[in-house]
Simulated scan of single mutants.
Amino acid sequence: MTDRSHGIAPAELGDDELRREMTHLHETRNDTVLGGSEDALEAHTRRMLELEEEFLRRLPGEAAPDPQRTRAGKREGSG
């Protein structure tokens, strides 16, 4: 039996579900940091890292930085 007490394993989520889960976790992060118990913060952090790792593995193009936000891109753009 699979433990799903902290949600579906990230690898089992579809791309849209993965995006939605990550968005929700980022929306609730501040409340967890400021008002959650140590256990809640630990569980939140673990889930966030699992989702982010899966996102970066599966959708690297969506996580690539905008070239204008990198030093090389800024130098290139300024001539």
Rank of each mutant, 00 (worst) to 15 (best):
D39R: 01
T23R: 02
E76G: 07
S5P: 00
A63G: 06
P10T: 03
L41Y: 08
L25W: 09
R71H: 08
T28N: 07
M1H: 04
V33Q: 09
E50H: 01
A9H: 07
R19C: 12
G77K: 14
A43P: 12
T70S: 13
H44L: 10
K74W: 15
E12S: 06
T70I: 05
M48Y: 15
R46W: 01
L49G: 00
L59W: 08
G61I: 01
R4F: 07
M22P: 05
D39G: 05
T23A: 14
T70G: 08
S37A: 09
R69E: 15
T28F: 12
A72Q: 07
A11N: 09
L51H: 01
T32F: 08
N30I: 15
L25E: 14
E52A: 10
E17D: 07
G36I: 11
F55Q: 02
E54N: 02
T23C: 01
D31Y: 09
L49E: 12
R71W: 14
R20A: 09
R19I: 12
M48V: 11
G77P: 04
T70Y: 11
H44Y: 07
P10Y: 15
D31N: 09
P65M: 13
R47Y: 08
P60N: 02
R69L: 15
H44D: 14
R4I: 08
E21F: 02
E42H: 00
S5G: 13
D31L: 14
H24V: 06
D15C: 10
E38Q: 01
T2N: 10
R46V: 07
R71E: 08
E76I: 10
L18D: 00
G61C: 06
T45F: 03
E54V: 10
G35R: 07
L34N: 02
A63T: 02
S78A: 13
D39E: 06
I8T: 04
A43L: 12
L13N: 03
A72E: 11
S37H: 04
M22G: 04
A43M: 09
E52H: 06
E38T: 00
A11R: 12
T28P: 06
E17R: 06
T2V: 14
Q68K: 13
R19G: 06
D16S: 09
D15P: 05
A11Y: 13
E27H: 03
D15I: 13
L13K: 08
R19P: 00
H24E: 15
R29K: 11
E54Y: 05
E62W: 14
P10E: 13
R29N: 00
T23H: 07
A72S: 06
F55G: 14
H6M: 10
R71I: 14
D3V: 06
T28A: 05
N30G: 11
S37P: 13
S78Y: 15
D16V: 07
P60T: 03
T32P: 02
E50A: 13
T45R: 01
E12R: 11
E53R: 07
F55I: 03
S78L: 15
E12H: 10
L13A: 01
A11F: 12
R47H: 00
A43H: 04
E42I: 00
R69K: 04
T28C: 10
G36P: 06
H6Q: 03
T70M: 13
D31S: 03
G79D: 10
E50I: 01
E38N: 10
L59M: 11
R20L: 11
T23P: 00
L56K: 04
E38L: 09
P67Q: 01
H24G: 11
D16A: 09
R47T: 00
E21K: 00
R57A: 03
